[in-house]
Design a protein around this nucleic acid. Structure first.
Lengths: 201, 201
DNA sequence: GGAAAAATTACCCAAACAGGTAGGTGATTA
DNA sequence: TAATCACCTACCTGTTTGGGTAATTTTTCC
């Protein structure tokens, strides 16, 4: 089953998959909600899922599917290779994470491997995942501070939004800077965006 | 002619185009350098070009092609709709700018219109382009300061990198904040990234 | 040649920020 | 029960930053 919001991409990917004698595309979906619905009807062996989807995002779609069908085998197939996306996708139960420009044969082999129950990650992706794991997670509160920081809010403004004192905001920022391994708010903002911890717009 | 680094996308897009009786895909390329080379050989009527390409970027590829063939008709077809990308693409001579999820019929009509010499921009894109024009351009120096700012450098560090005093850096920042309509460096960094004025990594 | 824009430097001042240290609470876990 | 962790607050200190104002030099453009 293919899940991607670009019909052209689905069409091309379907053709590539169908060119393999043992693989077939039995269903397609253009967004997360439809993906769940169509999964229920078709119970595909393997799902190829893009993460950037309109409405319900790819990660949410994976979680929704695996909540109902905990044996669902999902391969993430996306353009981006951002640390946080990879992490969340794997966390939510994806068995593999491939970039869209992966060569055809590797793609086909990955589909077969995942169908057989294996979990398979390309070296580059595994490396990023490891790097992500090194970095301690941010606590709920630190996340909230970071979100506001990225909107360009000052410490004072953040303190008002979160109903805490400015000193507390600073305390959170201190641990935040340490965890992200940066020295100031600007660097924190840039890194958070680059690592995909928060998404712009 | 199709230029995109994802074979699957090219394949699907080719199928969509070929399904129109009057349209045909005569050539494909996976990166900017090959695009120029193949353009020379095939002289396609219209080029569909992705902006994110390995090596030479899409904008550079458009410029290279139009330098040799100033009657080349290029349609940008991309996933992103960042203000600066749109602006640069149109500046470099693209006749139209479509998002990859544009419906098939609109895509076909745009190809026909551009073939006939028209320049056609969807309302949403035209709007962003207008917004971009409102914002005064950044001078060369301001750009350099912004680049370093986005790397998380302090005013002091920026001044050393550019061989100017810290006061001058501050002066540039003042005009920069005004032009970007922000109040501090963090907001400037975020906005610059979001508007696509600078690209991360 | 002269106007306009960009780039440069300077100074002052107030606000914002980052680092250090220190302590308190409540919830979870070993 | 003790330890750990997230969360919160406070104070102090020095640095960084941003705003205002002003002036010089260079470059660019008409």
């Amino acid at each position: 089953m293919l899940v991607d919001d670009h019909p052209a991409f689905r069409k091309g990917m379907a053709a590539l998959i169908e060119s393999q004698p043992d693989l077939r595309v039995v269903a397609e979906a253009g967004d997360g909600a439809k993906a769940l619905e169509i999964y229920r009807r078709n119970k595909p062996d393997v799902v190829l899922m893009d993460l950037r989807l309109p409405g319900m995002g790819g990660v949410e779609a994976i979680m929704a599917i695996r909540k109902e069908f905990n044996d669902a085998r999902v391969i993430v197939l996306t353009t981006f290779d951002m640390d946080e996306d990879i992490f969340r996708a794997i966390q939510s139960g994806a068995k593999s994470y491939l970039l869209k420009d992966t060569p055809d044969d590797e793609l086909a082999n990955t589909i077969r491997a995942v169908y057989e129950g294996k979990e398979i990650l390309p070296g580059k992706v595994a490396e990023r995942l490891a790097r992500r794991r090194q970095r301690a997670d941010l606590s709920q509160r630190e996340m909230e501070v970071l979100q506001l920081l990225i909107k360009g809010r000052s410490n004072k403004e953040i303190s008002v939004s979160l109903f805490i004192t400015e000193d507390t905001v600073k305390a959170h920022l201190k641990t935040l800077f340490n965890k992200l391994n940066v020295k100031d708010r600007t660097e924190a903002a840039i890194n958070a965006v680059r690592l995909g911890i928060v998404h712009l717009q």
